[in-house]
Simulated scan of single mutants.
Amino acid sequence: MAEKIKIEVRLFANLRERFPKESRGVKEFEVLEGFSIDDLVDLIGEIDRSTVIILKNGRREKDFEKKLKAGDRIALFPPVGGG
């Protein structure tokens, strides 16, 4: 039987709207061991995987199949534009 682990998720810019306003874009999740970044994106809902920037524990992560571990910190950023 898979154990539950806790992870922290931080959403930035317009993605913050997916969490309650008082959370300020930060939420702790309790998920089953073996949960992947892809599973997390599904849980948060309607995020374009082709453009979102994901950091796992402060480092860019492009492998959405990467399994999460207890205490991981995940940050999601929308695409960035500029001039």
Rank of each mutant, 00 (worst) to 15 (best):
M1K: 06
A2Y: 11
A2N: 13
A2V: 14
A2W: 06
A2T: 14
E3T: 13
K4H: 02
K4S: 06
I7D: 01
I7K: 05
I7Q: 04
E8R: 14
E8Q: 13
E8F: 02
L11E: 04
L11W: 01
L11P: 01
F12N: 07
F12Q: 03
A13C: 10
N14P: 00
N14E: 14
N14W: 13
N14C: 04
E17P: 00
F19D: 10
F19S: 09
P20A: 08
P20Y: 01
P20W: 01
P20R: 05
P20F: 02
K21L: 11
E22R: 10
S23V: 10
S23E: 14
R24N: 14
R24Y: 07
V26Q: 10
K27D: 07
E28A: 12
E28T: 15
F29V: 15
E30G: 05
V31S: 10
L32A: 06
L32W: 02
G34R: 11
G34Q: 06
G34H: 07
G34P: 03
G34Y: 07
S36C: 09
S36T: 15
I37W: 04
I37L: 14
D38W: 00
D39C: 03
L40S: 04
L40R: 06
L40P: 01
L40C: 07
V41S: 05
V41K: 06
V41I: 15
D42C: 03
D42A: 08
D42Y: 02
L43H: 10
L43P: 04
I44M: 09
G45K: 05
G45W: 04
E46I: 13
E46N: 14
I47L: 04
I47H: 03
D48W: 03
D48M: 07
R49K: 15
R49F: 02
S50F: 04
T51Q: 06
T51K: 08
V52F: 07
I53H: 07
I54P: 02
I54Y: 06
L55F: 01
L55P: 00
K56L: 11
K56I: 15
N57E: 11
N57P: 01
G58H: 09
G58P: 02
R59T: 12
E61T: 14
E61M: 14
E61K: 13
K62I: 12
K62D: 12
K62F: 05
D63P: 02
F64P: 00
E65Q: 09
K66E: 15
K66W: 04
K66H: 05
L68R: 07
K69W: 00
K69F: 01
A70L: 01
A70C: 00
A70E: 14
G71M: 14
G71Q: 09
G71S: 10
G71A: 10
D72C: 04
R73N: 00
R73Q: 03
R73G: 00
R73V: 10
R73H: 01
I74Q: 10
I74E: 12
A75C: 05
A75Y: 00
L76E: 03
F77E: 11
F77C: 12
P78V: 13
P78K: 08
P79H: 04
P79W: 05
V80M: 09
V80L: 12
G81N: 09
G82Y: 00
G83P: 01
